[in-house]
């Protein structure tokens, strides 16, 4: 009897935490982020400052945008592995066109059109031909990478350099805490957040991921939704690539390759289910920031790259397992 009564509140608390994780993962994630920041301050007193926050934000922005690609794709039960090649390609193409007159704008336009085109092809494959998104976007990754290489060879004589404006966009800041990249990121973020919550299109992304049969029976034609989805994803990856090349001040055809897996990790940490129908972009943004802070923490701890990867991987498994548990039907 006593055991039963004493256990009851605990169980309720557990249920509350479960519910919180399930319905509002952003809140516990922000808590996790806060803990990380506290830890980093304890480890290296005085490091946490406005400047530091600016550095973290700057580093998080490209990752957060790429995580946006994964979020919207994962909501439908898909994934976009082509973001690495597409993002690298846009930064690279823009860089190679810097020397022609008006080349910067021209380069950006060409790059983003190409990025959208790549997304369109992926979308047709996934939506119309029903190729598994993993395979389709992997194939597109090869195609874009190869074409970018071809482009590289043909433009090698002109030389390349990251345009000054992109450098400013990627690494500059209004004030320390407000990098210029927010000029791009904030509208992107607003569009995705509002788009997912308040537009019919966003609803359909969730619908297709949750139950494609129900979506079909309700009159949704999923191929339309999927083509648009991958075009958006390609475009976002392209934008991320531009910022990334400015941030890293380099442009290479493999610049964003190492960001693909973290972008998926950010979305998974943020509570988006790879099975579709569940999640949101806010969580992914926090996930991207958490990954960036975590990387910084490990650097401070003198734990180099290897440990960082091990920790990243473990966190993804643990978080995904936790989400699977709390969202499972009781």
């Amino acid at each position: 009897m006593t055991a039963a009564t004493s256990r009851r509140p605990r169980r309720q608390t557990a249920a509350g935490v479960r519910g919180l994780f399930r319905d509002q993962p952003v809140i516990p994630l922000l808590g996790l982020l806060a803990i990380l920041v506290v830890v980093i301050e304890v480890v290296d007193p005085g490091i946490v400052s406005i400047d530091w926050a600016g550095v973290i934000i700057k580093g998080s922005v490209p990752l957060a945008i790429l995580a946006g690609c994964q979020t919207i794709a994962m909501l439908t039960g898909g994934i976009d592995l082509s973001v690495g090649a597409v993002a690298s390609m846009t930064g690279f193409v823009t860089a190679t066109m810097i020397h022609s007159p008006g080349g910067e704008v021209q380069g950006i336009v060409i790059a983003l059109v190409a990025a959208s085109l790549a997304g369109f092809v992926s979308g047709v494959g996934v939506g119309v031909f029903r190729v598994h998104p993993l395979i389709m976007t992997l194939g597109m990754n090869f195609v874009v990478l190869g074409l970018a290489n071809v482009w590289q060879l043909q433009n090698v004589q002109t030389g390349a350099g990251v345009p000054a404006n992109l450098r400013t966009l990627g690494s500059g800041a209004f004030v320390e805490v407000l990098p210029y990249s927010l000029v791009v990121f904030v509208p992107v973020m607003a569009l995705i957040l509002v788009g997912l919550k308040r537009t019919g299109y966003g609803r359909l992304l969730y619908a297709i991921g949750d139950n494609p049969v129900a979506a079909r029976l309700s009159g949704a034609r999923s191929w339309q939704v999927l083509i648009v989805l991958y075009v958006i994803s390609g475009l976002l990856a392209g934008i991320a690539g531009l910022i990334l090349s400015g941030y890293a001040n380099t442009a290479s055809v493999s610049l964003a390759d190492s960001s693909v897996l973290p972008s998926i990790a950010a979305a998974v940490i943020g509570g988006t289910s790879i099975m579709g129908g569940r999640g949101g972009y806010a969580g992914s943004i926090v996930g991207a920031v958490i990954l960036t802070v975590l990387a910084a923490l490990l650097t401070i701890l003198g734990l180099p790259e290897p440990t960082r990867q091990i920790v990243f991987g473990s966190i993804i498994v643990v978080m995904a397992a936790a989400y699977t548990r709390v969202t499972a039907e009781s």
Partner: peptide
């Protein structure tokens, strides 16, 4: 859509067509 709300489930046919994709 078992993971979505009552509201989204009822409103699903309203948003199915392309012309309802906007806000």
């Amino acid at each position: 859509m078992m993971q979505r709300s009552v509201r989204e489930n009822i409103a699903l046919p309203f948003v199915a067509g392309v012309r309802h994709w906007a806000m």
